[in-house]
């Protein structure tokens, strides 16, 4: 399977599984809105990829995929420390940003 689609699927699904737990740890609606924004971005990135069908031989794509795997591990780790929700949101924001960059690589 193309690593691009797999990476975006993995991120979307991981955030889906963790969403309730992260939202519950948010002290206010502001943090919840931030988490929701990133979740929706991750979802959109995934469906963009489904629509476009990636080529996975682009070296930039390979590099982004590697970066996403690292971000993915950080999301998994940070959900064990929901007491620092600001840091959790930062990590998710960075990870989804990498996903957005990956989703923007369109096969011509």
């Amino acid at each position: 399977m193309g690593p691009s689609l797999q990476s975006l699927e993995d991120q979307y699904m991981l955030l889906t599984q963790q969403l309730s737990m992260i939202l519950a740890a948010c002290p206010s609606q502001t943090e919840r809105d931030q988490v929701m924004t990133q979740y929706v971005a991750s979802r959109r990135n995934y469906w963009n990829c489904v629509q476009r069908v990636f080529h996975d031989d682009d070296p930039q794509v390979i590099s982004l995929v590697t970066e996403m795997k690292s971000e993915q591990q950080q999301i998994t780790d940070c959900t064990k420390h929901l007491d620092d929700i600001a840091k959790v949101i930062d990590i998710i924001t960075d990870a989804v940003g990498v996903g957005t960059a990956l989703a923007a690589k369109v096969a011509v």
Binding site: M1, G2, L5, Q6, E9, Y12, M13, Y46, V50, V53
Partner: peptide
């Protein structure tokens, strides 16, 4: 792979 992914998600 896309079809499999659609089902999984």
């Amino acid at each position: 792979p896309v079809y499999d992914s659609i089902d999984r998600t």
